[in-house]
Design a protein around this nucleic acid. Sequence first.
DNA 1: GGGGGTGGGTGACGGTCATCACGACCCGGG
DNA 2: CCCGGGTCGTGATGACCGTCACCCACCCCC
Lengths: 239, 239
Amino acid sequence: MLSPYGLEIVESCLTCKLRAERIFCDLPNSALQAFENIKYATAYPKGAVLFVEGQSPRGIFVLCKGRVKMSICSTDGKTLILKIAEPGEVLGLSATVSGKPYELTAETIDPCQVNFVKREDFLRFLKEHGDACFRVAEQLSEKYNNACHEVRSLGLSHSAAEKLAKLLLEWSGRNGEAAKLEPRLKLALTHEEIAQMIGTSRETVTRLFAELKKRQIIQSKGSTLLIRNKAALKLMAGA
Amino acid sequence: MLSPYGLEIVESCLTCKLRAERIFCDLPNSALQAFENIKYATAYPKGAVLFVEGQSPRGIFVLCKGRVKMSICSTDGKTLILKIAEPGEVLGLSATVSGKPYELTAETIDPCQVNFVKREDFLRFLKEHGDACFRVAEQLSEKYNNACHEVRSLGLSHSAAEKLAKLLLEWSGRNGEAAKLEPRLKLALTHEEIAQMIGTSRETVTRLFAELKKRQIIQSKGSTLLIRNKAALKLMAGA
DNA sequence: GGGGGTGGGTGACGGTCATCACGACCCGGG
DNA sequence: CCCGGGTCGTGATGACCGTCACCCACCCCC
């Protein structure tokens, strides 16, 4: 099998082992077969742009492998990262359903495998498969939920410190580190990107990290970060 | 017919004249009949709370008449208004679909007529009526779109002035005033509420309005507001 | 080894805006 | 009539943070 960009391609959804754990992909067999017939399995290198905000929707992109940066961008070039999409998510879904332009820009930050489905094919598929349609509603709810969290973080925070604390706590709640007293996490993003996630400047992020280290709240070694005082961080996050 | 709170109740969706122009309500007859059987037509006075953020979802609220304030609220009491829902919108939809707690708080700001549907009934209804399910997906896309705009406004603006300008332009784009050179609009909200919509303080809103008037960009008489210099406003909005 | 590109660290400065504090006004009710 | 309670108008003050400017430490590739 071809493996561009160092990826092993999962050729068919029917035999995909990861299917069960993914909200959208875990469809009944008849729907899956139909989906199989309209999807195009594709691969992208790191840094590829799947779609740009403002484009009229070509279709959906089911992310199978790799991570994708979802962002919006202002006229003066400032970027805000809304989320880092993980495998199993369906990108460009709301635009494809509503027919309005893509709201976000999607850019790969790893080599990615993606299943693309053309808009007309996808809409037809939805009409014919009510169960898939419900999965779509679930995915959209998920995304909406996410967006609400973002709004809350952006709109109700008093300071950049609060937002950074929230972000770190959110990250620390993954990988089963949630329960630990001193959770450990991988910093996979640059200060610049973190700044774009919380709507602040790169310098502010650097300064905040410096202060957190000085106050012994965090500790870093290479790209791993250890939260030494979760309570203090929660306090900063305003809860 | 009873008409609490000065409302004329539309008793049945089947005979509702406004149905055709509403995204969700314009269903095929079979689905509509089924919907009719599970909905409860209710009325609320101004200031009633339909649901509170964090509650686990009881069901959906289809807004037939009146406006509803959708907001989130921080632990320290600060409120952010996400949008003012208009008739035809389905409230509490994403929480009801996903089963997660309501993301927002819904509070009526007019006397309202609402069709309530219990969660179990609604989910069953969706499974049985694929076409309704698609409408749900459309509604959710709409809401997601909205949330993205909010994120953009909150996250990518440089100043409160920019956000206020954006809000005024958005408002001026309704009621067919969009095309006019000097659009007119009704200020239905207090400065406090406007502040909560753009994530700033009441005083700042007051000061911004004062400045806009001084610079002859707007002009107000009672609760109507006349935009005298749309170009300047657009410039302030950063586009 | 040198150069360029990227990411991180830090100081100085100034603008924006939240906050507090107060006063003016409007309106409905006792 | 006067007295709240809501809303609006406005000044003073200071924190926070965006911006500019610069330097350093890497890393990779000639």
